[in-house]
Every structure is written in C-alpha cells, then in structure tokens.
Design a binder for these strands. Sequence first.
DNA 1: GCACTGGTGTTAACATTGTTTACATTATTC
DNA 2: GAATAATGTAAACAATGTTAACACCAGTGC
Lengths: 204, 204
Amino acid sequence: MLTPVRKRSDYHHGDLGHAAIRAAKNLIDSEGLNSLGIRRVAEATGVSPAALYRHFENLEQLKAEVSAQIRLELGEFLKAKRDRTPLSRSKSRNALIRFEALGEAYIDYARKHPRLFEIAFIHCDEKPISEFGDLAWELLQESIKELDEVGLLDRKIAVAAPMIAWSSVHGLAVLVAQRAILQREQDQALRQIMDGVERALGAR
Amino acid sequence: MLTPVRKRSDYHHGDLGHAAIRAAKNLIDSEGLNSLGIRRVAEATGVSPAALYRHFENLEQLKAEVSAQIRLELGEFLKAKRDRTPLSRSKSRNALIRFEALGEAYIDYARKHPRLFEIAFIHCDEKPISEFGDLAWELLQESIKELDEVGLLDRKIAVAAPMIAWSSVHGLAVLVAQRAILQREQDQALRQIMDGVERALGAR
DNA sequence: GCACTGGTGTTAACATTGTTTACATTATTC
DNA sequence: GAATAATGTAAACAATGTTAACACCAGTGC
C-alpha cells in the first residue's frame, strides 16, 4: 500500500480527510498507536501539519475516526470470511459452520492487525455495542438466529446468547492482540472457547 | 491519597522508583493514560524530570512497571473480595459461590478503575498469562479445582475450563472498562456471562 | 469576465514533551 | 576520612500538538 501523494493542482489536496484517516490507519498498523502523530500523518499525505486541522479538531478526534473506520473494516472482514467458508449439505451443520467462521475470523483479524484491533473499541463512550449499529454485532445476531432456526439454540439462553458469544471471543481476541497468549496456543484456545460457547448456547 | 512528598535530607528522595510508580498509577487512574508523563510524575514526586531516568530507562518502561503493579493489585483485589463473600453450609454451593465471586470482583475492578484495567495487560509480549505467574490466573485455576472436587465440572471440558472462564469474563471486563456497555446493563451482562460459563463448564 | 467569499492549504511561531549531558550532592565502602 | 557509586539538579535538544496570520483556489452572483 503506497503513500497517497498529492494530486491535482498541487495546492489543494482534493481528498485530505479520507486520505488522512487511511494514512493514520496504516501508521498504527505498522508502527503502533504511539507512532501516530499529526506531523507523521501530514508527511504521509504530503501536506503541512496545520492543514489537518481543517478536517479534524485535534489528534484525539482523528484517532476516534480511525477507530470507527476500523470497526467498519472489521465487520466487513468478518462478513467476507464467513461468506467464503465452504458449506455442507446439512442446513443444521451450516448454521454452526457459519457461526464458527465468525469466531475464527474475529480472532484472525486480531492476529493479523493487533494494533488496529486494540483501538477498534476505544472511545465508544456511553455508546453501547448493541446500539451503535455495529456491523459485527449484527452479523453475530444473525448467526445466532440461524442457530435457533435449526434447533441448535437453547431457548432458555436465547436472549443472553449474543452477549455470551461476543464477550467470550472478544476476550480471547484482546489477549491475542496484546500477545498475552503464545502464537502456538492461540488455535487451541479458540477451539476451546468455541466449544465452550456452543455448550453454553446449547448447540451440541 | 495524597501526593508523596520529599522526605529526609531533601536532596535524595529515599524511595523514588516506588514513589514514581505509585504516582504514575494515581495519575492514570484519575486522568487517563494520555496524562501520564515523565514531567507530571516528577512534579508529583517532588523531583526533577531527569531524576526519574536513574530508575527507569524511559517512559515506556515506567508504563510497563505500572502495568505489572496493576496486575498484582488486581489479583489481590480478587482474592480479598472472594474471601469476604459469605458462604453457605453446602460445600458444593460454596465452590460455585467463590467462583462467581471471582467473576464479580473482576468486573468490579474494571468498573472502579477502568483506566488502570485497560493497561493491566499491555506489553505482556510473548509472556502468556498462564506462565507469568499471575495471581489472578492462579486464583482461577484454584477455583476451578474446587468446582471439580464437588462434581460441578464436566471432565470432558476440564483442561479448557480456565481458558473459557477467563476469556469470557475478561471480554466483558474490557468492554466495561471502555464503556462500550451501558452502566445499567453491566450487571445483567455479567449474570448472563456467568450463566454461560457455568453451562459451558457443566456446573449445573 | 470579475470581484468576492468560503474552503483549504502554507509558514512561522508557541508552549510542552521525552531525553541527554554535564555537574552537584549525598551514601557507602575500604 | 577519602574514594567511589548512587542519586539528585539544571540546562539544553529535538520533536510534538496546536494556533494565528497569511496565500491560493473553486464556486457564486453580477
């Protein structure tokens, strides 16, 4: 991914703002949150530092917008990976396969982009997951409904199911992103946790 | 908690290092990680900024030591709260009560000290939870063993149990600390998750 | 075509930060 | 009690976020 360079008349950028968010994201992804700075982003977008203040109030707001962007991309990543998993002929098994694909994809993202994942959920202040229209959350709900339709969801636990599944996998993802779990133990941990979730939901 | 002030002869501090970690912790707790700085800590401990470099290589290392300190305090918090929960006469119920107390205490800490909790597990690089002799992890293992002894643990899931329980509750704790879950929904979420964990472990 | 206006960029400055260097003071050791 | 190590200070450095004053340019209304 190359650094986007100035276009057009060479004075006005044309799409700073979006370009800044992209540059900031790449910076965090490759060098970490601490390396994110107004001046670094300005350099990467080929613009003077002060120009960024026409598009963001301050560094903190830029971070927040990058964070939102990452949440979006995470959701798209989950969706894409789930829709690419091969299905069987059993509708019942497919519900489970697609559910597990979501879990795997979630951990996968945390492993591939740990620094992005770490800031995905900063500053959701008083905006709960279940309300800020998060794509990932919707995918989870949808998947649980699929489980229900094929009889793999214990009705007693139905309303709690999304929370249980989310926090279980999210917990692991956080630990993976922070490298608090050894690389070689991550796959095993995921299998254990998905097993646990499925036992909890009654899906067995 | 007052700012520790210079003691003794007024030139040598006597216990900078520990005092710095304490000051840094209080700073983070009350104003957030972004407000942590060498100069702020120097001011709080009544010392010149350069003095801190006799005790820490740089700001990053100070952060790491604060992080370790927080992990320790979190463990002690869990232990204290668990040992203060009233027990019943049934040994079987007590195992469950103590297990749930751990979960509640974990969330409680994240709620009371969100900014501390958030940095508790940064920079555990390649030192997995299960190995760095973490007190909290030991408490969890111990509690699961208690569940096993009273027959509340499904043997098939025994080895996976710690991972399942940890990541579930840790996931919620992270969301709570980041305020991605509304205050009034937190208690319900915890109950749902503990239910889920107990179903997963076979503890019913 | 042309002035004007709002949006977007630049440059130069400011206060503040982490960090280093050279030096001062105290503790400790023989 | 002198030498030495440990621990503090002060002053400087480059780099940072941010602001203010000015420059350019696209679009609108005449």
